[in-house]
Amino acid sequence: MRPRASVLVGFAIIAVYAAAALLGPLLSPYGEAEVVGDVWEPFSAAHPLGTDNLGRDMLSRLLWGASRTIGVALAATLLAFGIGMTLGYLAAVVGGWVDMILSRGIDTLMAIPTLIFALVVLAVLPPSVVILILVIAVLDSTRVFRLARAVAMDVVVMDFVEVARLRGERLGWIVFREVLPNTLPPLIAEFGLRFCFAFLFLSSLSFLGLGIQPPAADWGGMVRDNANAISFGLPIPLIPAAAIAILTIGVNLVVDWQLERSSGARRGVRP
């Protein structure tokens, strides 16, 4: 299937953000927490996006924030996949009581709304970057577990897996050579969705003042810092908020296409 225009837009957005995340600190004209002007200065040649509530350069903070926000969300997503996929495959391939204990445990964890769970935990633990990554990863991994287990279950019941069992193959071979290669396509799309979740979740926590702590630049936190500007008719908090929304839209456009493509290819055409 030929990608639609919207998918190309999605890829372009992701590319721009990836560049910003990698090169942001190098490109930024000022330091992350450097006070360079007055409060909420308008757009100018010196400050293309104006200044923030403490007189820091908005563009610089946006660029610094890119690597921080995207980096933390990406790390959390990767960790979530590590945990979720390992446990999900284990549950599907081993089955029996291992599956039951894991599934019941994850179900219970999922019975608590993610944000509420995170708030409870963050009431006790310090909101350091490591803790944030761990909390988001653990909460996100429950969804990965569900999907990984479900797709692995579909594959595990196939005869070629039984053939491997009957041959006497060990667990490692069955998981990595028989099951894993056949479950990757749906998990790739899921990676995009889980990244969006982690990214929005982190931004929400920061917006609530419980995520990445100032003075470090973070897009959710920047919305919070500049929220008051709205009442003066200044759209300043909309800038970091839009930065968040645009990346999520970009990723979702690609994921949507990927999901449609994989389901369409599986359905095929009935003769």
């Binding site: 196939m158 005869d159 070629f160 053939v163 028989e178 290669p181 056949n182």
Partner: peptide, 12 residues
């Protein structure tokens, strides 16, 4: 097996 489609790993 009955169904050769699912008795062979499609990725091998």
């Amino acid at each position: 097996y009955q169904m050769p489609d699912v008795a062979l790993n499609p990725r091998q």
